[in-house]
Design a protein around this nucleic acid. Structure first.
Lengths: 220, 220
DNA sequence: TCATTCAGTAAACAGGTGTTCGCGGGGCGG
DNA sequence: CCGCCCCGCGAACACCTGTTTACTGAATGA
């Protein structure tokens, strides 16, 4: 129970952080073509080059390492989302920015994206839950900004939220499509981008004319 | 090379089919809380109650069993899709039928749905590819029917296809949401249904006013 | 009736797995 | 300076894995 100074004692703690990071990196690399539930503890330590028992100094479980990877993958993304949403509110420009940002993020962090896409419905409950929570937070952030758009005047909170979820889900699908494109499976990157832009444009169009439809089916 | 009679020789072949089906059922049951890449051969045969070696009489691999499960899960669904699309073309009624059909299918075949959602981006390439092919076929079928709607007059084939993909992706997301609801995670079934209906209604609204937007951003 | 086919068996193989234990040695606080 | 802390090590534990082998015996076709 030492450590009254909040800052790290350079050598000791940072070194622990380094090997912890090495474990995360090794895990992420191995997860490129496996799923978390089939990733072995020894497999990870072998890549890092350390004894299996040392793993327990950093993580209790494999699923523990999994939720750490979720934080690493999705945590840094909130800033990006804010940045996109805070720019000009013009429809097509915002769409261009969004799709561009997704493409860039997938290009720069393919392994993180693949991990999230794979474990979103994967076999490890704790990780699945962690991803779900994070995506919910994204939906909250998006909805919150959407509500301030002029187009959303008169919208119920529930409708704004359902639109936000639609956007978030679409982003996930698009990211996954970009990933497939990068691997040579499915259509190429430019095709994916164009499809995504048009789909978002169609949603925006529906949004602008929402009042017409919503009044007709209010109770549903 | 016998077997000039095309029909089964009752006892022999049907018995083989029975145990094959037992293997598939056992696999599906175990896959409720595991992913395919972590499902063991012995694990499956143990549930069925037979020797591990007998597995090879029916499947080469675990991934082989996986693609068989894909066919079983998605094959029977094409008829349902046709049925939904061939009904009255009125927007909200078609939407109600769609969401109702998804809810019912998830309620009646939860394990199949979970399997597909999990392995769509899972760690077994062959299974991933099989699911991708099947979803592409669904997108084809949907697009083909959408093209005949009066609303689609003047639409390019590419735009119709992108709308079809949007619908298929949305169905997958909705099915997954229903699944979570059935497990007590996330919102309850009625909430999921209402959100899905409104999202589809929003897409339909955008579809009706597509001409306005598409002309403005034709080159994108 | 006799020979053939073939789904399923039992046993053994060489590996890999998670987890526990005691121990060493270097950073660190006093 | 000494003594505690604690990360990483190596070895051992019991267990589970996929795959191969030679085999049994019932259904089959001539």
């Amino acid at each position: 129970m030492s450590h009254t100074s909040a800052s790290a004692s350079t050598s000791r703690e940072t070194q622990k952080a380094r090997t912890r990071c090495a474990l995360l990196d090794a895990g992420l690399r191995l997860l490129e073509d496996k799923s978390l539930s089939s990733l072995g503890l020894r497999e990870v330590t072998r890549v890092v080059g350390m004894a299996p028992a040392a793993f327990y100094r950093h993580f209790r479980d494999m699923s523990d390492l999994g939720v750490a990877l979720v934080d690493e993958s999705l945590g840094s993304l909130h800033a990006v989302v804010r940045e996109i949403l805070e720019g000009p509110r013009d429809d097509v420009e915002r769409i261009d920015r969004t799709v561009g940002a997704i493409a860039r993020y997938v290009r720069e962090h393919p392994t993180h994206v693949r991990f999230v896409a794979r474990e979103r419905h994967g076999g490890v409950p704790a990780v699945r839950a962690a991803i779900g929570r994070e995506l919910d937070r994204f939906a909250d952030e998006v909805s919150q900004v959407l509500a301030t758009d002029e187009v959303s005047a008169g919208w119920s909170a529930e409708d704004v939220r359902m639109l936000g979820e639609l956007y978030v889900d679409h982003v996930v699908m698009t990211a996954s499509a970009f990933l497939d494109a990068a691997l040579g499976e499915g259509p190429d990157e430019e095709t994916v981008a164009r499809t995504a832009r048009r789909q978002l444009l169609l949603i925006s169009t529906g949004r602008r004319h929402w009042a017409d439809a919503a009044s007709g089916a209010a109770g549903t």
